[in-house]
Design a protein around this nucleic acid. Structure first.
Lengths: 346, 346
DNA sequence: GTGAAAGCGCTAACAA
DNA sequence: TTGTTAGCGCTTTCAC
């Protein structure tokens, strides 16, 4: 059995309450020499307060739950890493769980977090925000998704606008037949990026039919398959336009890695035969061959903002919900056509 | 205030104990109609048992702590993802934390896990295994590192042997001046991979001096820098051998991504000018240009084995420690020279 | 088959 | 300044 507070009290010749007062610096003052006796006893016995008991008594669990679709995608990976780091600095521990896009998992995991009295929740794919799980939640919740009307605070990237601006950049290079690789449908973000592509194409009078869209699995493989589908001579979903798309908008860097590989296999030169712009701005985007032009979303900043805001809400219950939207920046690499000869060094 | 067990008991017209009997299917039987009344009350009130209270009373926390050096490296990312998935299936939640190689973080985080009464711990970088934190731990601990003498169970990849076999493959292709990119030094794994390269080179009478080694940061950037250092005409750490290394052994896939990029920038053809073999077998390795030849370590299997074993130890306290070592498989891509013309499709 | 009651280790109000 | 004590919500033994 572990050392308890009573053991310390006995060893120091004081009451258990005094031990608490020393540990928590309050709520009552403790005489200096008593405090020292207590600290000595703690040290000697190797006493560690029982976090569970403290949490039950009404304190906090010093824990935040983080719900993401998955972990292996670099976007969510980087997000989780930075959130975890920031929270750790603040003395919180992070409980993570992945939904893999299943709404049922989402509700179940959310409920598990709630049952464990996490002090706060950060949710990335908020399909079940209106579901039963979140109604009447007592902890602070932050949603990383655009929901201006939500009673919960939201913090999001401008996925639709960012996508539109990425597509615009391809249009500026003279492309009008622009394919779109997005997916998987369960990630709401991808829906917005798809809209961004579609709206930008429509607004500027360019084609935006489903024949130009390939829904892909997350991951390199998904992008590889999708690019193969959109670009190869077999199948030719673009047949109605009489020519192959000259550019691809790819909704995530990782999928773009796969798409680049597909181009390489098909013998298509990037950006000469096929230009390519993706979204994400992951670390790896600088190191593809050639380096990706990508709409960089500052995940680290997003993560830190989320933590800051969440901790504020935890410390100050009853704050009105905040809604913040962050905008991406285009990082120009070699796949869009800006630097076809690989001159630019970044 | 949330609904408590007493509320349910009152609503169902039974005592709180009966509610527990129903919820836990024991330890005492409950009459069918009573059970139904209780379940109805639970349903109606939306009662959820308080996990904290249950844990305090002596049950388990249904939580496992996972300590890794970081999260963004795909190896640890994939490991964590699979561990989390497996544990979730078994009804456990995963607490994750990253040490970033700092021993002090490691001890502190370990202690935090212990304070929270996690049912088990999975530790990847076990520098502090002998430290104070782990002495007298009551929960089950699994170490993902080679420690045959450890009183804790260990599960590891054969990093040294795998590295040696990767280097051997380059030697088979006729290379003898083989550079080595490893890092960062705080990851014990990298030390072993470095040894693997050195021993294999020595054993076969080939050079293994420090001039052929580049210590690199984790990540693409690290591999990029290191390859630049080892291959460029400036600096020429290989000057003593009169020629540039014709092959590189890279300790991780991600670093290899950077190294490939460096070759591309330097105008060196892979594998003709520089052959390359890395370790990891991450998903992305299939999609580089050209695809990597890499010593694949089956992280998913490692993760699942770890969970299985850990849960066994949790359920059966007092099991003697097990020590398992897994071996990698070379996945042949195009960077080693096996298929210089890109003929092979995998 | 069910209820009463003793704690798990802690915090904090209250008493001294 | 310090000690006493009442719970937090739950599990489980023991008595009925």
């Amino acid at each position: 059995m572990a050392v308890t507070r009573s053991d310390v009290a006995r060893a120091a010749g004081v009451s258990p309450a005094v031990v608490s007062y020393v540990l928590n610096n309050g709520p009552r003052p403790v005489a200096t020499h008593t405090r020292e006796r207590v600290l000595a006893a703690i040290d000697e016995l190797g006493y560690r307060p029982n976090a569970i008991a403290s949490a039950l008594r009404g304190g906090s669990t010093q824990t935040v739950g983080l719900l993401t679709p998955n972990r292996s995608n670099p976007f969510y990976g980087a997000l989780a890493e930075e959130i975890e780091r920031t929270l750790t600095e603040q003395g919180y521990l992070t409980l993570t769980a992945s939904t893999y896009g299943y709404r049922s998992s989402e509700e179940r995991l959310l409920q598990t977090f709630i049952d464990r009295q996490t002090d706060g929740l950060i949710i990335t794919s908020g399909v079940s925000l209106s579901g039963p799980a979140l109604s009447g939640v007592e902890q602070s919740v932050l949603v990383l998704e655009e929901r201006p009307e939500s009673p919960l605070s939201t913090l999001s990237m401008d996925d639709e606008g960012d996508a539109a601006r990425a597509v615009d950049h391809l249009q500026v290079h003279g492309h009008d037949l622009i394919g779109c690789i997005v997916g998987p449908p369960y990630v709401s973000t991808d829906g917005l990026r798809l809209s961004g592509w579609r709206e930008q194409q429509r607004r500027t009078g360019r084609p935006a039919s489903d024949g130009l869209v390939a829904l892909a699995d997350a991951g390199e493989e998904g992008g590889y398959q999708a690019a193969g589908l959109l670009l190869s001579e077999h199948g030719r979903p673009w047949a109605v336009y009489g020519r192959r798309p000259t550019a691809l908008f790819v909704a995530s860097d990782v999928q773009a890695f796969g798409a680049l590989h597909a181009c390489w296999e098909l013998g298509l030169r990037v950006p000469d035969d096929v230009a390519l712009v993706s979204m994400g701005g992951t670390r790896g985007a600088r190191f593809t061959i050639p380096p990706l032009t990508t709409m960089r979303q500052d995940v680290e900043y997003l993560a830190r903002s989320a933590c800051t805001r969440l901790l504020e809400e935890i410390r100050t219950p009853g704050l009105p919900p905040a809604h913040v939207r962050l905008t991406g920046n285009l990082v120009v690499g070699h796949t869009c056509g800006c630097s076809p000869y690989g001159v630019i060094r970044r």
